[in-house]
Amino acid sequence: MVGALDIVIIDAGIKDGVETGDVLNIYKQGALVKDPIKPRKMVKLPNEINGELMVFRTFNRLSYAIVMKAHSDLRVGEELKSPYAGN
């Protein structure tokens, strides 16, 4: 698990359009809950912002970043998106 001020490696780099100084939101997977209308059916809630990181070194296919904010523990595989991209 990862928290604030930890250094992470992300699987996106220069060839993916990532640049030094880019800030990305970290999204955790939405929970799977019982549908209140149809109790036998499960519904996936939307992904939620769980933190923020900033890229400080880029390579062709990976980058190093520092986690600036973490609302809870971060895990491998969480989704990254630009805060300016449409959800």
Rank of each mutant, 00 (worst) to 15 (best):
L32V: 14
M54C: 02
A31R: 11
V23P: 00
I10F: 03
E52Y: 02
I37E: 12
T20S: 11
D11P: 12
P39E: 11
G21V: 03
L45Y: 05
A4C: 06
D16A: 14
I7W: 06
G30C: 05
K34S: 14
V43F: 05
G13R: 06
A4E: 15
E48S: 10
K34E: 13
N47V: 00
I49Y: 01
G30S: 04
I10R: 03
V43G: 08
G51R: 00
M54E: 11
K38L: 13
K44A: 15
G51H: 01
K44M: 14
L53N: 05
Y27M: 03
K28P: 00
M54T: 05
K38S: 12
L24P: 04
D22N: 15
V8D: 03
I37H: 05
V43M: 12
V33A: 04
D11I: 06
D16R: 08
A31F: 02
M54A: 03
I26A: 03
G13D: 11
G51T: 00
N25H: 10
T20Y: 02
I49A: 08
G17H: 04
D6L: 00
V55H: 07
E48R: 07
P46D: 12
K41G: 02
D35I: 13
L5K: 12
G21Q: 02
K34G: 05
A31M: 07
R40Q: 13
G51W: 01
M42Q: 13
K41Y: 09
G30N: 03
V8S: 02
L45H: 06
V33I: 15
A4I: 08
E52S: 14
E52A: 07
I37A: 10
L45T: 11
Q29D: 14
I14S: 07
V18A: 12
K38W: 04
V55K: 05
G17Q: 07
E52Q: 14
A12T: 09
I14G: 00
D6W: 00
N47C: 02
G17F: 06
G17E: 07
K15N: 14
T20Q: 13
I26G: 01
M42P: 01
I49T: 15
N25P: 03
M42R: 13
N25E: 14
V33K: 06
E48K: 11
R40F: 09
I37P: 00
L53R: 03
L5D: 15
E48L: 09
K28Y: 07
G51V: 00
G21L: 01
Y27V: 02
K44L: 15
L24M: 09
P36N: 13
P39D: 09
I7E: 15
G30K: 02
D35E: 12
K28S: 14
P39W: 04
I49K: 11
Y27P: 00
D11R: 08
K15A: 13
D35V: 13
V43Q: 11
K41F: 08
G21T: 03
L24Q: 04
L45K: 11
E52W: 00
A12D: 12
Y27A: 02
P46H: 05
A12N: 10
D11Q: 14
G17V: 09
D22V: 06
K28Q: 12
P39A: 08
I7R: 11
K28L: 06
L45R: 10
P46F: 06
P39Q: 08
I37T: 13
P39R: 07
I10W: 02
M42H: 10
V18D: 09
G13V: 09
K34Y: 06
K41L: 14
D35G: 11
N50Y: 00
Q29K: 13
I10G: 03
M42C: 01
E48Y: 01
D6S: 06
